[in-house]
C-alpha cells in the first residue's frame, strides 16, 4: 500500500506539489498522468526517498518514510523497483552487469549464479542472451527500457514497481511490448505499480484507475468512467486530444 497524505514539496522557491493526497492499495496499478512539469516524476522520487517532502506524510506498507533513519529507508527501498525515465542504465557496465548490479553489490552469490539469474531475467523481459556483454549504448531504446525493468526486478524481488515514462520515445510496437510486460508483472507477480506517463493511450492499456496531476495538485482520482464524465475544465482540456482513445476503451469494455 502506498499513501500520500497532504504532501507538499518545492524545489527552492518553486512549489512542485501542493497538498497532494492519494492511496493505492496493495497489488493495484495506478497511472499518474499530467502534462510535463506537473510534478509526476517528483512523486516517484518522494516514494523512493530521493527527496523529502516539505509537509505531509508518505506511507509505504504502513511505514511513514518521512523522517525515518537512512538504514530504515534502505530497507524500504529493497521492496521497491524503479524504472527510470530513459532507463538510467549504468553506461560503463555491460547489460549483464546492469541487470545483476544489485546482486553483485549486495549478495554473496557466486558470479556464475548471478550470471544464471541474469540470463533468466533476460528471458523474462523478452531479450536474447546474446546481448549480455553489450553496453547500453549499443541497444535500442526499447531494449534499454527492458534491461532497466529486468534490473529493477532482479534487484529485490520488489513488492512495489515505479515506472517513470516507460514508453516515452519508443515506437508503437516497442511501447506495446513494454506495456504488456508491465501488465504481466502487475497481474502475475501482484506488485503494486505506479506508472507515470503523459501518454494517455498507454495509460488506458495498463490500468483502470488514474490520478491526474495539474500544477502539483491532484485534480482527478478515479476510473475511466469517472474520467470520461469529469467536468473539471482542466481535465477536459487535458483529455481533449485523446477523446478517441477514451471512446475506444469504453467501446472495448462494453464488448
Amino acid at each position: 500500500m502506498i499513501e500520500f497524505r497532504n504532501v507538499s514539496f518545492s524545489y527552492g522557491d518553486k512549489p512542485v506539489l501542493e497538498n497532494l493526497s492519494f492511496r493505492i492499495p496493495t497489488g493495484e496499478a495506478r497511472v499518474i498522468m499530467g502534462q510535463s512539469g506537473s510534478g509526476k516524476s517528483t512523486i516517484l522520487r518522494l516514494i523512493l526517498g530521493l527527496a523529502k517532502p516539505d509537509e505531509g506524510d508518505i506511507l509505504i506498507e504502513d511505514t511513514n518514510i518521512c523522517g525515518v533513519r537512512p538504514r530504515v529507508l534502505r530497507e524500504i527501498r529493497k521492496r521497491i523497483g524503479m524504472v527510470f525515465q530513459d532507463g538510467a542504465l549504468f553506461d560503463s557496465m555491460t547489460v549483464g552487469e546492469n541487470i545483476g548490479y544489485y546482486l553483485l553489490e549486495h549478495s554473496k552469490m557466486r558470479f556464475d549464479e548471478i550470471g544464471e539469474k541474469v540470463r533468466e531475467m533476460l528471458g523474462f523481459v523478452g531479450l536474447s542472451e546474446d546481448i549480455i556483454d553489450k553496453l547500453p549504448d549499443e541497444l535500442s531504446g526499447g531494449m534499454q527500457r527492458r534491461v532497466a525493468i529486468g534490473r529493477a526486478l532482479l534487484s529485490t524481488d520488489p513488492k512495489i514497481m515505479l515506472y517513470d515514462e516507460p514508453t516515452t520515445g519508443l515506437d508503437p510496437s516497442m511501447a506495446s511490448n513494454i506495456l504488456s510486460l508491465i501488465n504481466r508483472l502487475t497481474e502475475f507477480k501482484k506488485v503494486t505499480s505506479i506508472i507515470v506517463t503523459h501518454q494517455i493511450a498507454d495509460a488506458f492499456e495498463i490500468s483502470k484507475k488514474f490520478i491526474v496531476i495539474d500544477s502539483g495538485k491532484s485534480i482527478f482520482d478515479g476510473d475511466i468512467t469517472q474520467l470520461r464524465q469529469a467536468d473539471d475544465s482542466r481535465i477536459v482540456e487535458f483529455l481533449k486530444p485523446f477523446r478517441d482513445s477514451i471512446a475506444n476503451v469504453q467501446k472495448n469494455e462494453f464488448i
Binding site: 522520487r45 523512493l48 526517498g49 530521493l50 534502505r74 527501498r77 529493497k78 521497491i80 524503479m82 527510470f84 525515465q85 530513459d86 538510467a88 542504465l89 549504468f90 553506461d91 548490479y101 544489485y102 553489490e105 549486495h106 534487484s155
Partner: peptide, 13 residues
Amino acid sequence: SSKQLDAMVAFGI
C-alpha cells in the same frame, strides 16, 4: 545528469 546516481541510491548504494 542521466539519473544514474538516483538509480544507485534506489539500489541501496
